[in-house]
Amino acid sequence: MKYGYARVSTTDQDLSIQAGALKAAGCEIIRAEKQSGTTMEKRSELATLLDFLRAGDTLVVTRIDRLARSVGDLQMIMRRLREKGAHLQATEQPIDTSTAAGKAFLDMLGVFAEFETNLRRERQMEGIAKAKDAGVYQGRKASIDVERVRTLRGEGKGATEIAKELKIGRASVYRVLSEESV
């Protein structure tokens, strides 16, 4: 049986093109999610598929970068598929892990997907550095009212009570209070 997996990185992106390609490839069940591919965390639909696959099943994606953005994650997914006796196919790339050529091509694409992620991260960091030098980038605005934390502390409230009232983490309260004592 063929199972499809579709993924986009952000909630404003559309999954319909991938879903259509997976249906056309013969997938009877398609799991989809809107989650970053740079890590396996929070990708519950992929985890469900990897748990569900059985010997002889095929996991189908449109492109390898929909499945993993790092060689390590790709290798872990492939190891799980091999353990189960399942295969991987991509609709837009000549990948079929039931063949030696497909396995080799998969490894090469995994390297390029990770390379692309690293390049994107480098460009992002260069842009941030340039914006900081120009005085344009200020970073995220403070989300904690430092004066309010100090006022509540002055009223004799403890860190847990302050954190609950301001709906922030206790560690944030401790950070503000430790900066005060320095």
Rank of each mutant, 00 (worst) to 15 (best):
L59C: 02
L50D: 06
A32P: 05
Q13S: 00
K23D: 00
K130F: 07
R80N: 09
M1P: 15
V176E: 00
T11Y: 05
E122C: 09
T58S: 14
Q35V: 14
A134C: 12
D57Q: 12
M78I: 07
P94E: 00
R121L: 11
E165M: 01
G135E: 13
R69P: 06
S44M: 07
L152Y: 03
S98D: 15
S9Q: 01
M40V: 03
G85Q: 02
R123L: 04
A19M: 07
V176F: 01
S143T: 13
E41Y: 09
T48F: 10
R140E: 12
Y137A: 13
V182H: 13
T58M: 13
G158W: 01
G72R: 10
E165S: 08
Y174T: 08
V173K: 01
P94N: 10
A129T: 14
A86F: 02
I17M: 14
R7Q: 02
V111K: 02
Q35R: 09
V61S: 05
A55H: 01
E83D: 15
A6T: 08
S143Q: 13
T117C: 07
G56S: 04
R148I: 02
R121S: 05
A25C: 06
F115P: 01
G127I: 05
S181C: 08
T160E: 10
L50W: 03
G135S: 15
R140N: 12
E33L: 05
L50H: 04
